[in-house]
Every structure is written in C-alpha cells, then in structure tokens.
C-alpha cells in the first residue's frame, strides 16, 4: 500500500491553514477488526492529518520543504472510522519558521469529531532529499484538482 493518506486538498491558505479529505475504502489493507466490524487503526487517522499538514508546508514553500514529525503535544482519538467514511482534515499553523512548523488540527466524519491534535511540531526538511520533485508536483496537481480534471 502506498502511504499516501490524503486524497484531496480542498483549500490552502499558505502559511496558515489547510483543508483536505481522505477517502477510506474496504479495498485498502490497513483495516483491523473492531467490535462492530473493521476499523481504521488510530495512528492512520493521525497520519492523514499530518499529511494534510505536510501539503500545507509544501504548497507554502513551492514544494521546497516538507514536514517530518518531531513531536506531538497532544492527540486524542475520539471515535472510530469505518470503511467508506470520508475523513475531513482540518489543519492550522500555530507557528512556522524556515526550520520548524507547529500545527494543530482535527479530523471529522460527517461532522462527527474522530481526532483532535494540538502542537504537532514538524521539522521542515528539503523535499528533494525525500522524493522526486516532479513526482511531487504531479501529485499536488491531482490533489488540488489543478490539472483541469
């Protein structure tokens, strides 16, 4: 499975906030058994929010930088996510410099809060050290629907 836990970037205010979506599907292979059927492992919900945050950083810096997790101030896993749910990812920047960004955010499903996190601190590292920049640009166009589709 590709570890790309975001499917749409709906809105970005560079340096300030991001809104995106992660669509879940039973055809993905991370589900684990829960009381009433399969549930998404909680770390994956957090990762989806973190990936919204990294796209905020990438779009803010014209894809020069991306975020690597340094610390989590606090995270609460509030409710389960089931196959077919669409995660609404909301991230906002508390502070950002050339080296470090601090973001907070929440994840909801149909308005129901499933995760809240605050003071997620990320190191901003050179994006080209992690992935091919042309691939990243293509992915950005798909996520933001900026390719005319």
């Amino acid at each position: 499975m590709r570890f790309h836990l975001i499917d749409k970037v709906d809105a970005v205010e560079p340096g300030k906030s991001v809104r995106g979506k992660k669509l879940t599907s039973l055809s993905e292979d991370y589900w684990e058994p829960g009381e009433d059927g399969p549930v998404m492992p909680y770390p994956f919900i957090l990762e989806a929010l973190c990936q919204a945050g990294t796209w905020l950083v990438m779009i803010t810096t014209d894809r020069r930088k991306r975020a690597a997790l340094l610390s989590i101030g606090s995270v609460d896993f509030l409710d389960v996510v089931r196959p077919g749910d669409v995660l609404e990812l909301d991230g906002r920047v508390d502070s950002m410099s050339d080296e470090v960004a601090v973001v907070s955010g929440r994840v909801t499903v149909d308005g129901r809060p499933v995760l809240e996190a605050s003071d997620i601190m990320c190191a901003l590292i050179d994006a080209q050290d992690l992935a091919d920049l042309d691939d990243t640009e293509r992915l950005q166009k798909m996520l933001t629907r900026a390719d005319g589709s």
């Binding site: 590709r2 570890f3 492992p41 909680y42 770390p43 994956f44 957090l46 973190c50 992935a131 091919d132």
Partner: peptide, 19 residues
Amino acid sequence: IFDSHFPRFHVLPGVLILG
C-alpha cells in the same frame, strides 16, 4: 511502506511507532 515513505529516504512513520 518504504516505497512511498519516502522514495529517497526510507523512514518508519512516527505514528506507527506511537501505535
């Protein structure tokens, strides 16, 4: 997971360590 996290620098996602 290392195919995409990341193509040029393989690192286990922190959230999975927390998990």
